[in-house]
């Protein structure tokens, strides 16, 4: 299966603004309980276990996933804009295989009113 990881953040936000990070990962999220009636075997478990988000190298979001998470999981969360830089989201599966998606963000100062 082709590994596809997507991330979307606004291109430009004001300093202090709350913005949404949207992510989508292509993954079967196989819980390891499905029984194949033709081959009499159980499909081995393969899940994305951890999702981490680093904002300019600092860990700002962390999630542990279990077997009830849907296939092709879609995850969004909110962050507060501090400085321009890069947002990196990392998915780690059962075998410690790491996949990432990154997006740049441009933080501008609030216009003085």
């Amino acid at each position: 299966m082709a590994e596809i990881r997507r991330i979307s953040v606004p291109k430009q936000v004001e300093k202090g603004e709350i913005f949404t990070v949207r992510t989508l990962a292509r993954h079967k999220m196989e819980p390891g309980v499905h029984f194949d009636a033709n081959r009499f075997v159980v499909t081995p478990r393969l899940l994305l276990q951890e999702v981490k988000c680093h904002y300019n190298g600092r860990l700002v979001f962390y999630a542990e996933w279990f077997s009830a998470v849907s296939s092709n999981p879609y995850l969004t969360f909110k962050l507060r804009a501090e400085e321009s830089g890069e947002i990196v989201v990392t998915w780690v599966d059962d075998y410690n295989v790491i996949t990432t998606a990154a997006a740049p963000i441009d933080v501008i100062d609030k216009p003085k009113s």
């Binding site: 082709a2 596809i4 949207r22 989508l24 292509r26 092709n72 879609y74």
Partner: peptide, 15 residues
């Protein structure tokens, strides 16, 4: 268009 999981298949289809 971002969250539609079918678009993942489209991406693979284009490749």
């Amino acid at each position: 268009p971002f969250a539609n999981p079918g678009s993942l298949w489209l991406e693979e289809g284009r490749a």
